Simulated assay, not measured.
Amino acid sequence: MVFCSCGRLAVIKTSWTDGHPGRRFYACPIQGPCCRWIDWVDPPMCPRSIQIIPGLLRARNRNEASI
């Protein structure tokens, strides 16, 4: 079990930012400014994945929007 800095049981979320695409992290279950603690679950991705995944996500989103 992992707890955030405010003492709540942390949840696992997935980052879809360009810098950390698909990387999982622990976060406080309460969204908002009260507790901004995070801790990575996964190791950093290789540089090539960081280059490719955001482009694939943008292409998929464009395709879904056109349907």
Results as ranks from 00 to 15, higher is better:
20 H>L: 07
37 W>N: 03
48 R>F: 03
19 G>V: 06
17 T>I: 00
13 K>Q: 07
62 R>K: 15
25 F>Y: 15
44 P>Q: 03
17 T>F: 01
51 Q>C: 07
16 W>V: 03
11 V>N: 08
7 G>R: 09
8 R>D: 07
7 G>L: 05
10 A>S: 14
19 G>L: 13
22 G>D: 12
52 I>M: 07
59 A>Q: 11
2 V>L: 10
9 L>H: 10
58 R>S: 11
58 R>G: 02
55 G>R: 15
8 R>N: 14
65 A>G: 01
65 A>K: 14
29 P>M: 11
7 G>K: 06
52 I>A: 07
12 I>D: 13
61 N>M: 10
57 L>V: 10
42 D>M: 02
65 A>P: 01
24 R>V: 00
45 M>A: 13
19 G>C: 06
15 S>K: 00
27 A>H: 01
22 G>H: 10
38 I>R: 13
30 I>A: 04
21 P>D: 02
6 C>I: 07
50 I>C: 03
9 L>K: 13
56 L>W: 07
64 E>P: 00
7 G>M: 09
12 I>S: 11
17 T>A: 07
15 S>P: 01
65 A>I: 03
66 S>R: 11
46 C>W: 07
23 R>S: 03
37 W>R: 05
51 Q>L: 12
5 S>Y: 00
1 M>F: 00
9 L>N: 05
46 C>A: 09
16 W>S: 05
62 R>Q: 15
4 C>E: 06
37 W>V: 01
1 M>N: 10
50 I>D: 02
40 W>F: 11
55 G>W: 10
13 K>M: 06
32 G>N: 12
11 V>G: 00
50 I>M: 06
10 A>E: 08
59 A>M: 07
21 P>M: 02
64 E>R: 15
50 I>G: 05
52 I>W: 05
4 C>S: 09
23 R>I: 02
11 V>C: 06
3 F>M: 10
44 P>G: 07
31 Q>I: 06
30 I>E: 08
34 C>N: 07
29 P>W: 14
15 S>H: 01
27 A>R: 07
37 W>Q: 07
17 T>E: 01
39 D>R: 14
21 P>Q: 05
60 R>N: 14
54 P>Q: 08
21 P>N: 04
13 K>S: 09
45 M>S: 12
12 I>H: 13
49 S>W: 04
50 I>T: 11
7 G>H: 00
49 S>G: 03
61 N>T: 10
44 P>D: 09
16 W>Y: 06
25 F>E: 06
62 R>F: 11
18 D>I: 02
62 R>G: 08
12 I>C: 13
58 R>I: 03
10 A>F: 05
34 C>F: 02
62 R>W: 12
10 A>T: 10
9 L>D: 05
26 Y>P: 00
64 E>Q: 14
42 D>C: 04
